[in-house]
Simulated scan of single mutants.
Amino acid sequence: MERADQRKQVTNRSLLWMAAMLLLLIALLYIPLPYYVIRPGSAIELQPLIQVEGGTKEEKGALMLTTVRMGEANPAWYVYAKLSPDVDIVEEEAVISHGETNEDFERREATVMTNSQQVAEAIAFERAGYKVKMEKQGVLVMGTIEDMPARGVLQIGDVITAVNGKRTRTTTDLFDQLKGKKEGEAVALTYLRESKEQKAVLPLKPLVDTEGKPTGRVGFGIRPDNKLLIEVPKKVTIGTKNIGGPSAGLMFTLEIYEQLKKNIDMTRGYRIAGTGTINPDGSVGRIGGIQHKIIAADIAGAEIFFAPTDSDGEVSNYDEAVATAKRIHTAMRVVPVKTVDDAISYLKQLKPKQT
């Protein structure tokens, strides 16, 4: 009888121990933390994803965009990120703005990606000698601010085309139209949503900066960007459904340009990766997470990597990329670019790869 009781006690302790371990495992893997984990993603060949009407695909090598993987942190990922040099942990509000939903974030990323593709098309066609129509269409809503009048009225992707009946073509126009107005005044907006014109009247409230300090200006609470109406003479299809953000702009431009320049293989047989936003003037802009993209490109066998050389941060993207390349001991060449023309010039002088 005593042995049976002892066995029962041992069994109970084992069950309690297993239950505790299960609860700990659940806590480690499923309890969300107010952080995001960022780590190397992949390098994706662009030739299969992009089709230019009448274009040719003669690449012996490959042009590749690079990505990062990003997800909500749990305790296990948090600890891993603190221990690994190849994983970053950032506060949630560095990724998703205060009051923004995951749906808002995904819509914003998709909108930015669409803009990036359209600008890439325009720059590639211009550099290939085609005429391109590029018209300032209005102010693109990239987000709304919590507790401000625009929240619940305007959506990410809306394009403001007029304020109080006056044409609004750029963010500068919008700021000028709101200058001198006071709290409590209202403005009548005309905007496009999925190409359909709509109207709204919004009151103005004081604006604050990212630290919550008054700016001395009033507004209705959006995160604005310029929206361009772009028309190119040939149809371009880009299949990147699960990729968001603007950082593939440079590589989109290069792939479209190469397909337009018939019978020219700009890759010269090399696997070429890169990153950087593309602007309407052809300049290449800074992006986040370049260290992760260097690792992704190296894993994919890239031999050349284009990195923006910028002055927006204390350390340029190019310097960050070089430091990571040295740390992981890759033979991949990191090439600095300020404009798409820098990248095109580099590829034109590149000697064909010897096989």
Rank of each mutant, 00 (worst) to 15 (best):
K199I: 13
T170N: 07
T190H: 06
R193P: 04
L192W: 03
K199H: 12
G184I: 01
T172C: 04
V187K: 00
D173K: 08
K196C: 01
K182V: 15
E185Q: 14
V163Y: 04
S195V: 15
L178T: 03
K196E: 12
V201H: 00
Q198P: 03
F175A: 13
V163W: 02
L202I: 12
A162V: 05
V159M: 09
V163G: 03
T172P: 06
D173C: 04
A188K: 12
A200D: 09
L204N: 07
V163L: 14
D176L: 12
Q198H: 15
R167C: 03
T168Y: 08
L207R: 06
T171Q: 12
K179P: 00
L202R: 05
K196S: 03
Q198W: 13
K196W: 05
K166G: 09
E194S: 08
V159K: 01
Y191Q: 01
P203Y: 02
R167L: 08
P206M: 13
R167G: 07
V159Q: 07
I160W: 08
L207G: 11
L204E: 01
G165V: 12
K179I: 08
P206E: 09
R167W: 02
G180V: 05
Q177T: 09
T161S: 07
T190L: 09
K181P: 07
L202Y: 00
S195F: 15
T171G: 02
Q177W: 03
A162W: 02
K179Q: 11
E194H: 10
K166W: 03
D176T: 14
A186P: 00
K179C: 08
L174H: 00
V201M: 02
N164A: 01
D176V: 08
V159R: 06
V159N: 00
K205N: 09
L204Q: 07
S195M: 09
E194I: 12
R169S: 07
P206I: 06
T170H: 07
G165P: 00
L202S: 05
K205V: 15
K205G: 10
S195K: 15
D173N: 11
T168M: 14
N164L: 10
V187M: 05
Y191V: 04
L174N: 08
K199V: 12
V187N: 01
T170W: 04
K166E: 13
R167D: 02
L207P: 09
L192C: 05
A186E: 11
D173A: 07
E194Q: 08
K196I: 11
N164Q: 03
A162H: 09
I160K: 09
S195Q: 14
T168D: 10
G180R: 03
V163D: 04
V201L: 07
L178G: 06
L189T: 00
T172D: 10
A200I: 11
R167E: 14
A200E: 14
K166L: 13
K181C: 10
E185C: 03
K179A: 15
D176N: 13
T171E: 13
Q198K: 15
R169G: 01
L202G: 04
Q198D: 00
T190S: 14
K179W: 12
P203C: 11
R193D: 04
A186Y: 02
K199F: 09
D176A: 15
Q177E: 13
T171I: 10
L207D: 06
G165S: 10
A188G: 01
P206C: 10
T171S: 01
T168C: 15
T190Y: 00
V159T: 09
